[in-house]
Amino acid sequence: MFKQLLRSFILLILLFNCNIIPVLAFTTGKEVVDHLVTVFSMWNGNQLQTKLRIETARYIAYQLMAKESIGSINWEKLNNNQKYKYTANFEKMIESKFYPRWHKLFSKGKLVINNEIKVDDEIYVKSILKLNNESDEIIWKLKNIDGELKLISLALGEKDLMNKLIHLIKKRYDKLGYDKFIKWLDKSNSNNAETE
């Protein structure tokens, strides 16, 4: 408990007062989840700060998620520049679509992390989000990428973040192709930013 409070305190100072953010090396999935929840809770929920983006991007596997969202076959057809551009746009979409929601729920609720299970190179962290009278079980899916544990999806009951994203993106990408899809994503991100 004390360790957790101390880490939150240090993180709060680092996030909002310093320009240098140290790389916190987490060895367990629980720690990564706890760190991400702390970051989202501490954000003020208004404008996305660069520090927050860097901190979350460090523990969310955006490139892998971007690849899964359009499928491996489509991904392999892209050159490095296109992959980079697509991943950046994909990240922006997640930020505008989910960050404010995650901030609201994590800051008002209480996440109780239960246990974690390792299956091959993936780690599943079970947790319960308690918010007033409601309790939701959340399963966080993490993967070890280049020696770091990163979030690749999260599931709430039968709903899964990655499946939701694939459903949103894949069909449209197949129909529009890379260039038109990027334009659509860009426009969609701008609209979301205006709404927020």
Partner: peptide, 10 residues
């Protein structure tokens, strides 16, 4: 009206 907001959707 029953409003349900979760991590993935409303």
């Amino acid at each position: 009206a029953y409003v349900n907001q979760n991590l993935l959707e409303d």
